[in-house]
Design a protein around this nucleic acid. Sequence first.
DNA 1: CTTGATTTATAGCCCTGGCTACATTTCTGT
DNA 2: ACAGAAATGTAGCCAGGGCTATAAATCAAG
Lengths: 143, 143
Amino acid sequence: MSDNTADEGQVPTPERFTQARAAQSMAVLEDYAEMIDDLAQEMGEARITDIAARMGVTHPTATKAVARLKREGLAVSRPYRGVFLTEEGAALAARVRMRHRVVVDLLVAVGVPQETAEIDAEGLEHHVSDVTLKAFEAFLARR
Amino acid sequence: MSDNTADEGQVPTPERFTQARAAQSMAVLEDYAEMIDDLAQEMGEARITDIAARMGVTHPTATKAVARLKREGLAVSRPYRGVFLTEEGAALAARVRMRHRVVVDLLVAVGVPQETAEIDAEGLEHHVSDVTLKAFEAFLARR
DNA sequence: CTTGATTTATAGCCCTGGCTACATTTCTGT
DNA sequence: ACAGAAATGTAGCCAGGGCTATAAATCAAG
Ligand SMILES: [Mn+2]
Ligand SMILES: [Mn+2]
Ligand SMILES: [Mn+2]
Ligand SMILES: [Mn+2]
């Protein structure tokens, strides 16, 4: 009895966790890309010190994150100079910013206070799939 | 112009990221606690092999996670025997399961397909604050 | 009761993302 | 032009969460 094709709140399948881990491994990249883009707009360029301050980490931590961005082809920089996003990095930042905004908007739409929405969205955004994002946009458009 | 007390989609503040990192550091603990609780109900006890299979990791990884649970007072176990949650661990598992269910229900309520909701919820749940959870429950109750 | 399969433990490796401490470079003001 | 301040780089530490390979214990049959 009851349809057994999809699981409906039953036993979690391993793929769920694998997927959540994959999403998490992108989170740092996404947040730094977005932040570098923010700083580029505000200040013309993103300096390591500013990135670190905004991310709430020390500068060696920011340096490591930028190194990973560079390694993955999302950013470029020369020693003692600012960090700049590649085209791919800028595209990622744009997607991430849009997703962040949609998540916040949806949270607010269902009754979450704005400030709480902003805080929670910072973690939530990295786990919103394209399908879910589209559903959020549709909900916001129709409500 | 415009009230500057709360930030309304402006520059992210470092605390947001600090908060997201704190939430993430609880994620593994939460998922394992819930899984151990699942297995205890299904099979009477949670064996390392079963925990690993369900979490989609190898058994040494599961052993490490259980070691952390024990270290934090959330579980107990004797060598070569099953893993059991402490009272505190069981309480955590209960909260986590409830939150997971509410998140899935909210996603479905705004139009996300059930299966996608289950997958996304596995990552999202760890970043839903109490305030947001309450808002979700209120939305579900009133809609 | 012994043996082979299964389960669990342990060692040791990798990567990530935090940190502090210290070296080096760049910038700024006189 | 230089000195001191500020920014950046780098080394090295730690914890967490993955993994493989191997050892040891437990379990299931015969
Ligand atoms: Mn984020
Ligand atoms: Mn964001
Ligand atoms: Mn989860
Ligand atoms: Mn869950």
